[in-house]
Design a protein around this nucleic acid. Structure first.
Lengths: 119, 119
DNA sequence: CAATGAACACTATGTTCATTC
DNA sequence: GAATGAACATAGTGTTCATTG
């Protein structure tokens, strides 16, 4: 039976919610992750984020649109923007419920260990 | 940078402390783990425990002694008992400190996610 | 079935390579 | 360096096989 949850599941929830809120593209999410988890000494590999994004797209949960990054016409940097499909919105709703249980289970497991060893 | 701690590290702390307290042999630890983590839907594979035990022995942290399980002379079941070496005792002390930080870091990470998504 | 251990297979994840602006 | 993606390598872990009482 399972120990702690997998990194991918953990990140996927963030990614889906960020897309739902129209928050940016892959690289930006990567930076956001770095920022978010800096205090915890955790910074996911960039390939993880792109893998998740690709999977979400393959599952039909998101659409992909290539855009130019800035409004500045001299900025030709292309980025890939994601939007939730209806299917994706449903999936997120279900996934949120699932992950709540799972995150709490894992938190409990760690708590138990902390209690067993340090109190 | 690291996501959550590895299962092996998590179990190793329990195993070392159990040996320190003269608590049993491999199979017994396995059962104890099942019992301990049943509420969390977690039950480690038996090979994990034996791998940890072997590693502890290879590192010189524990000694191995073959014994008969019961006092009943008709019970010929052999078990392998472990005892901490001095080196092992020192290691455990250091490991405990290390793991406290690590367990708290991971707990924080999960807490952060729960807060980010469900509050 | 209790107990131990090795061998093997898989998969999650990190590192590297490649490409474009 | 920002941005995306694929390809590759490896480590962690679970499953299976083997053996003994």
């Amino acid at each position: 039976m399972a120990f702690l949850l997998k990194q991918r599941a953990f990140l996927k929830l963030y990614v889906m919610e960020w897309i739902q809120k129209n928050k940016g593209y892959g690289y930006q999410m990567l930076e956001e992750f770095d920022e978010t988890f800096k205090p915890y000494g955790y910074s996911p590999a960039h390939s993880e984020i792109y893998t998740i994004l690709k999977e979400l797209w393959a599952d039909g949960y998101v659409t992909r649109d290539k855009k130019l990054r800035g409004s500045n016409p001299e900025d030709f940097q292309e980025i890939v923007l994601y939007r939730m499909t209806d299917k994706g919105k449903n999936e997120l709703e279900a996934y949120r419920k699932l992950m709540k249980v799972e995150l709490e289970r894992c938190e409990g497991l760690l708590r138990k260990a902390l209690k067993d060893h340090y109190s």
